[in-house]
Design a protein around this nucleic acid. Structure first.
Lengths: 123, 123
DNA sequence: AAATATTACGTATAACGTAAGCATA
DNA sequence: TATGCTTACGTTATACGTAATATTT
């Protein structure tokens, strides 16, 4: 199961101070939240939340994991964003300034190659 | 689509320099690896690997994401361990250097407090 | 008694592996 | 032609939501 998602659910529960609140925050059903936290605890072998029907408190391990989880989630999101701008399709306007002669001789060749086949006269 | 798992697969493929090798490394079938990398690329909206049947090369975005993924995976594993108490207990040798007088006056107090009850004379 | 967490259970979605197909050197 | 990435497809497993149950103030 998705570790990162489990972390997100756990963080949401902590910040909403309850399972039901966390569920609403993430647009999930309460049972899904219960299962997620339970799965996380079982996976880690540690109880993260001491919950009564009234209050949800983090255990000591929970506090530590809460901080780590938030950092990791943030890093993962940053990694997603960071990679987007690299090989993505170039956007925006490309402006080339040159003398007419220079342009006809050299620049247009590069423009044509960059654009690929064009359907209008190049010169 | 476990993001962390997708990252692991991608890293394994990169380090094994191939999908088949990565599959063996992770005890997965080759199709599962193909699907994982494809899912990751679709999720990110960026091609991470330029693959021919002979060589697998990272794109520029792939190189960036590879570094990020490795860091995030390591952090996630550390978080798992830390919460278990494996990394909680300090290990190794603690060396303290000080003059004898300074040591007796201040350092030993800290050492005693750090160690807790001891069964030998402190001075 | 009221609010909330949990479990049961049936359904739907998703992941997997085997096998077939395709592409590259 | 041989290796290895990919797609098809049937099966299995996982996750979900609704509804019922338990629990704490």
């Amino acid at each position: 199961m998705d570790r990162l998602h489990l972390m997100s659910v756990f963080v949401a529960v902590v910040e909403a101070e309850g399972f039901a609140g966390g569920a609403r925050k993430l647009h999930m059903s309460p049972p899904a939240v219960t299962r997620a936290v339970a799965a996380l605890e079982e996976r880690l072998g540690v109880k993260l939340l001491n919950r009564t029907t009234r209050y949800v408190r983090m255990t000591e391990a929970g506090q530590k994991y809460y901080e780590d989880a938030k950092r990791i989630i943030a890093l993962a999101d940053e990694a997603d964003d960071a990679v987007l701008g690299i090989n993505a399709e170039p956007r925006g306007q490309l402006t080339v300034t040159a003398s007419v002669l220079f342009g006809r001789l050299f620049v247009m060749l590069g423009v044509v190659e960059y654009l690929g086949p064009v359907n209008f006269p190049v010169l």
